[in-house]
Write a protein that binds this DNA or RNA. Structure first.
Lengths: 339, 339
DNA sequence: CTGAAAGCGCTAACAA
DNA sequence: TTGTTAGCGCTTTCAG
């Protein structure tokens, strides 16, 4: 074992150790161009023995190609984004591309920083959650000249391409289903997140469709922080104590909805007779609760899949359809009367 | 608006547009060395107007410095790893360093690929889950010459540094608490994951401590795939139908434990009198269930924090303690008798 | 305080 | 099939 240099090995080291030009070593290591079987094997052997790991930084600089796809999402602890990621990874695994994740915590300034940071690595594409970005972010995306797919929402104009569901429509459809089922005293429970534009759009669509049916939201309640399940319980108690005539509760996500459901079951309240409930997301996690909460799938994995497909196609030089609207459907579960 | 080049802007473009040498522009953009206030402002202005985003690839190659920390974890959908990440990000945000996440799906070969891929970007450090890696992975880590922190486990020998809990000890302590509470007919329910070494070690510690108390596991049940909550229900029914004399169920994670809890509550069974339950992890998500499941915290966030601190310190040239054992404590909840 | 020159480790493009 | 020559866009180093 030679005196360990601190510096890591270079192509040159492999070249010298194998008596082949750097260029040929490079070709072997990348499976590019024709190299005789004999030299190929020798080079591979030497590289492995030396424990050579290519330097992608140098490679990327020389080739002007980076096999990274920046994925920018608001949060990882939300359960929805890991599923998006899983869709993205699934597609990218078939390609040379590799996802790199950045998290914004729903903060526009942080989104800007993360985006800047990622773009400075010159990725081959960007997948970013939402259609709302700061002017600076939008400008960076535009100027980057690489494929950009905005995901999870189609209510707006994309910088480049978008894949998602219409949250306005989702809100409207849930409202219609609720009205159709005969509920009239409707409460809304959500997160205190002015920056969660998708939740906001759902709410807007929801109230709009209610209004069309001549109904107004009777009461609302918001929370922030803490365990969603526990908060769902609390909020549900609070809103019902305040407005006992409520006969339906629409939650901005399944987790607080589940908390509400557990609370009402504890109270022995008839669901969906006395009170109906609905959430949003189709969180698989919740299968196994005593009752299945009515909800609407956000097509999370599908978003990831389609977005990654667009990036992959664009990298191949194709020109796929830049707008993909996914259509979630209501799952009635056991907490929303069927009619 | 000039004819858009496809090529992105370079330092040179900023240099020309501002009439200052590339070198000075570089200094301004990095806040290095002395630059007169006047030129600094002009350069900054021009750079912003042009929408210049520095090319970190070139920068990294030239400076031999990369502000990336590779974080390699088995899964994102597990709820435990996002928390680890949050700890890591929290610490790294105070520094120049940036986490980059890779996911292995608990597959050693994939871990090897991901590690190779990440090391080829020459990160400043590696944080990797677990102490079990393929020989090749271990060799790469060793050869990389950068700080490596293995997390979530301290039952073994680290390549470099490690931060985590002893899962063997966690299993033993839970076993002791169960015996002390008087339970004797103990069942185990877990995942079919031969590659989840931490779950395996907990199980080993658990059976070992039971044996010391003259007790053997009476029955066990394993699952794979599907919604953990729903699976927990099913498995619990299965194992109790088969072995009705069981008076305690130890689950390898909180989510299946919660499923079991819900099932037993449905059945009207007295908990923790007739049957006691315990899980593992301290999943905050579950606060809000009708009863609080006994569990043991895995110190997920803390692992992330401490690991990131070690990397940051090492990057600063310090030599922090390479072994950090965190000590989880039992939370009895409502499903394990106190004595 | 500012600039010029020389690479960082690799690959594109050509030559042999 | 293999080798040679120029860079990629930045930073280091040294000289003004």
């Amino acid at each position: 074992m030679a005196a360990d240099d601190k510096r890591s090995l270079t192509l040159r080291d492999v070249s010298e150790a194998s008596g082949v030009s750097e260029m040929t070593v490079s070709r072997v290591l990348r499976n590019r161009g024709d190299v005789s079987q004999a030299t190929r094997e020798r080079v591979l052997l030497v590289a492995k023995e030396l424990g050579y790991v290519p330097n992608k930084i140098a490679g990327a600089l020389a080739s002007q190609r980076v096999n990274l796809v920046a994925v920018i999402i608001p949060s990882l602890s939300n359960m929805v984004f890991p599923e998006v990621l899983s869709g993205i990874s699934h597609v990218l695994e078939e390609t040379e591309l590799q996802p790199v994740v950045g998290v914004t915590d729903y903060l526009p300034e942080k989104e800007e920083r993360v985006l800047y940071e990622m773009l400075s690595w010159r990725p081959s594409g960007v997948i970013i959650a939402g259609l709302e970005h700061s002017d600076a972010s939008r400008a960076m995306l535009q100027a980057s000249g690489i494929p950009v797919v905005e995901i999870m929402d189609v209510d707006g104009k994309p910088v480049d391409a978008m894949v998602g569901i219409s949250h306005r429509r989702a809100g409207r459809e849930m409202a219609r289903a609720i009205l159709k089922a005969g509920y009239r005293n409707i409460g809304f429970l959500g997160t205190k997140m002015p920056l969660d534009h998708r939740a906001r759009k759902r709410f807007e669509g929801f109230t709009e469709a209610l209004a069309k049916g001549g109904v107004e939201i009777m009461d609302q309640e918001f929370y922030s922080g803490g365990s969603a399940l526990a908060k769902g319980r609390e909020m549900t108690k609070t809103i019902l104590d305040r407005s006992p005539e409520l006969d339906f509760l629409y939650y901005s996500n399944d987790l607080i909805g589940a908390g509400g459901l557990l609370y009402l079951l504890d109270q022995g309240i008839d669901i969906p007779g006395r009170i109906g409930l609905a959430g949003f997301n189709g969180v698989e996690l919740l299968q196994g609760l005593p009752r299945q909460l009515a909800t609407m799938d956000a097509c999370r994995r599908e978003c990831g899949l389609r977005a990654a497909e667009i990036i992959a196609a664009r990298v191949r030089g194709e020109t796929p359809d830049p707008v993909v609207e996914l259509t979630p459907k209501i799952s009635y579960g056991d907490t929303l009367k069927r009619r």
